[in-house]
Simulated scan of single mutants.
Amino acid sequence: MISLIANETKKVSLRFSTWLYPLIILAIILALSASFKSFVPDIDNVQLILSVNSISMFMVALFSIVVASAVVSSEFSYGTIKLLLIRPYQRWQILLSKYIVVVMYAVILTIFTVVMSYIIGGILTSFGSLTQDISITNPTYSENGDITNVGQTAINALGSQLGYFVIQLIFSTSIAFMVSSLLRSQALAVGIGLFLLFINSIAGGITLMLVEQFQWFKYIFMAPLYYVSMHANGVGMDVKGLSPELAIGVLTVYYLIFMALSFIFFQKRDVSV
């Protein structure tokens, strides 16, 4: 199994796009940080990081979905799937090794983004204490106008943002991975994966509004996924009948279903090319 993971890691690392994506994200972080600093000269490091991350993390999800969408379907597109299947491994082991590498790449890209935004933000502003109370410089308000993050430290705010994003990231890449496992065409798998990302960004808000009217809508994955993504962007919202715990629970059920479909279908499908 370890040799399979090593082999898949080598495949991913040899792709030009694998190294291009971090460079694009770095350029975006630099541009966003400079822009925020230019328009808000007195912005502090934490405000800058939270603002930059809410945008740059979208690119992390985008690139991770591209990788996840192509990881299996590309084997069929290039005809290399036969070379994998003649090796002394079970099909589920081959698929699992690919999924592990996809998640590893997504997590590493996330860590890279967070570290770079902190370093660049610190250079442009100052490396402020991560234990400072951010409710004064970066307050969030309830519908009644009360400050809801009194006593919240910078590290807690960053951790919360990162935690919600990782949930969103793993779920989104898992959908793309499932699509890649079901389709033979790499272009079609990538296209569907990106379509799902953008349609959720557009239609997710609509589904949340429908949750207010029809409670059963909260069990459609687009609503809890958008709800989690809003918390990841620091724009938490109150939705009747929907809480972070319920949203994560619903996404977990869908995640298990998608993973089961991926492995069952890959085990049963005809892989002749």
Rank of each mutant, 00 (worst) to 15 (best):
F217S: 02
L246P: 02
G163N: 05
L196Q: 08
L26K: 12
L210C: 05
I108S: 15
I206L: 02
L109M: 05
S135W: 01
A70C: 13
S180H: 03
S3E: 11
T148L: 02
I167S: 11
V40N: 06
K98W: 03
A31D: 09
I43K: 01
S51Q: 07
M116V: 15
V115M: 12
I24N: 07
I24Y: 11
D42H: 08
N53W: 02
I167P: 05
A232H: 03
S3Y: 12
V179I: 03
V228R: 00
A68T: 00
K218T: 04
I220E: 01
D42G: 03
G159P: 00
S272D: 13
Q132N: 11
V102F: 09
L23N: 13
S160Q: 13
D42Y: 07
V52P: 00
F171E: 09
I2Q: 14
T137F: 06
K240D: 15
K240Q: 12
D270F: 02
T173Y: 04
L130C: 07
L183S: 02
I28G: 11
Q132F: 06
F258S: 08
V103E: 11
E75Y: 06
L32Q: 10
T125N: 02
F217C: 05
L109D: 06
I192S: 04
R91A: 02
G128D: 05
H231P: 08
V179N: 03
M57A: 12
E212V: 10
S135E: 04
I2H: 14
S3D: 13
K98D: 01
L109R: 09
H231Y: 11
V52W: 04
Q267D: 13
W92E: 15
I65E: 02
L251T: 01
S51K: 12
L95H: 04
K240V: 14
S181H: 02
L197F: 07
L84R: 09
G128W: 05
L124S: 03
V228P: 00
S97I: 13
A27Q: 12
I123W: 01
I170G: 09
S201F: 07
Q132Y: 08
L130M: 06
Q168I: 12
S51E: 06
G163I: 06
I111M: 09
I123V: 05
G121V: 03
I155F: 05
